[in-house]
Design a protein around this nucleic acid. Structure first.
Length: 420
DNA sequence: TCTGGGGTCCTAGGACCC
DNA sequence: TCTGGGGTCCTAGGACCC
């Protein structure tokens, strides 16, 4: 039995999600913006064809948007997360051996599939389309890295029609020759620059590279990438994702902050969000890293960045404690005279909450606090964040902008699309 | 005017140990 | 010409991923 891994990847995921609920968008250029309507993070094929690069600041393409009537959307994470769940659920009908790799990608182990893998891929593709409305591409290879390669070509080639199987393929070398080295999984900007300087331009060149040289230049990770291209598995399918090691919530502000109060309010809100994530994972945090920063784009003399780590005597999952720590930390690192653009909290030293060691001098009633947090989380899951903490402030003028946001079509009753 | 957010792994170097 | 060998733990920073 030949080992085979499939990478299923949603095409232009965020843009496609927006399209499902508005058929008028079909065939038109669509872009989706990052938080605060800052950068382009997803583009429909039509938008890509207009030359709009990934990650470009929105204000730089405004003239192009006008000229070509490009449709612009703010990120609607609630919608994307729900659509992602539906896709993954659909995929799990085809094999129990699945690794959800990101919001729009999953690896599937197809080693045991008796039928033609390309045919099987086509069926997966068609089913996802029918059940969720989303287009996906599927690449199949002996390793994750080769599945990635196949996926890339499946997207590019009309002949593949969205599915390409490179296991046992006579076309494998030719396929690798068509992949530029910076498009290989694990090869980013720095590494591709060095590789090209050494005359390695394609995935095929990289596969044939000298392993000792690779090790000396790029360490063990580089060796693994080359071996994976050779068809030797270095990365296994992770069916049970390992427990999280850190949880971060950070966000740029809708407008610059100069005073301490609003900086504390914003950071308190992020601490509360982090607490929700923490409890959803069944974890408790042993420490918190709090940071504030000015914009990266102002001149050096106006830049300031500081962070501060607060350890907790007893690992906690209590938002009151998280907020208190965040507020105190911000007070410590705040410096007057700067225009702050962003702050955030990172929860560290995470451990299952049931294994938390009580501190010797811990007087807190943990069972009571847990019940309170569970109740608040439950209420906030039903209504959209019905309960707030006073420390988050009321007006929140620093909240990010989402000027082009669509409704929560699939997760809020009042936002259900209506059919006339 | 406007420039994302959330992660992981690896490496190098220092402190310390036997 | 010479420098012991091997190990752990921690941290900061770099590189990568989506």
């Amino acid at each position: 039995m030949k080992p085979a891994l499939a990478l299923v990847d949603c095409n232009n995921f965020y843009a496609s999600c927006e399209r499902i609920f508005d058929p008028k968008l079909e065939g038109r250029p669509v872009v989706v913006l990052s938080n605060n309507d800052g950068c382009v993070v997803a583009r429909s094929n039509e938008a890509k064809a207009l030359g709009i690069p990934m990650g470009i600041p929105f204000f730089e393409i405004k003239p192009l948007v006008e000229k070509h009537q490009i449709l612009v959307f703010s990120s609607n994470y609630t919608l994307y997360a729900d659509m992602s769940d539906r896709v993954m659920e659909t995929l799990s009908h085809f094999t129990p051996h699945i690794e959800v790799y990101s919001i729009d990608e999953a690896f599937l182990d197809l080693s045991g599939i008796p039928e033609d893998r390309t045919e099987y891929g086509r069926r997966i593709r068609q089913t996802v389309r029918q059940w969720t409305g989303l287009p996906v591409s599927i690449g199949i290879g002996a390793t994750k890295t080769l599945a990635k390669v196949a996926n890339k070509l499946a997207k590019k080639s009309d002949k593949a029609a969205g599915v390409l199987d490179l296991t046992d393929s006579p076309w494998l070398d030719q396929a690798l020759r068509r992949i530029e080295v910076q498009d290989v999984w694990g090869v980013g900007r720095q590494i591709s620059r060095k590789l090209k300087a050494a005359g390695i331009h394609t995935a095929l060149d990289l596969r044939e590279a000298n392993l000792n040289w690779i090790k000396s230049q790029f360490g063990i990770q580089g060796v693994r990438t080359v071996m994976e291209l050779q068809g030797r598995r270095c990365w296994q399918l992770e069916e049970n994702p390992p427990a999280k090691q850190s949880i971060t919530v950070s966000r740029g502000f809708g407008r610059l902050i100069t005073e301490l109060d609003p900086l504390q309010e914003a950071t308190a809100l992020y601490a509360a969000r982090a607490g929700e994530k923490l409890r959803a994972e069944g974890l408790a945090a042993g420490a918190m890293n709090v940071f504030v920063t000015t914009s990266r784009f102002v001149e050096k003399s106006r830049r300031y960045m500081q962070h501060c780590v607060i350890p907790f005597e007893t690992a906690t999952e209590d938002t009151q404690e998280l907020i208190a720590a965040a507020v105190a930390a911000v007070e410590q690192i705040y410096k007057k005279g700067y225009e702050y653009k962003k702050s955030g909290v990172m929860l560290l030293d995470l451990a299952p909450r049931d294994k938390v060691q009580g501190g010797l001098f811990d007087v807190k009633d943990r069972a009571r606090s847990r019940r309170l947090m569970e109740t608040i989380d439950r209420i906030n899951r039903i209504g959209s964040a019905a309960i707030h903490w006073a420390a988050e402030g009321i007006q929140q003028p620093w909240k990010a902008r989402f000027a082009h946001k669509t409704p929560a079509y699939t997760t809020r009753w009042t936002d259900l699309p209506k059919i006339h």
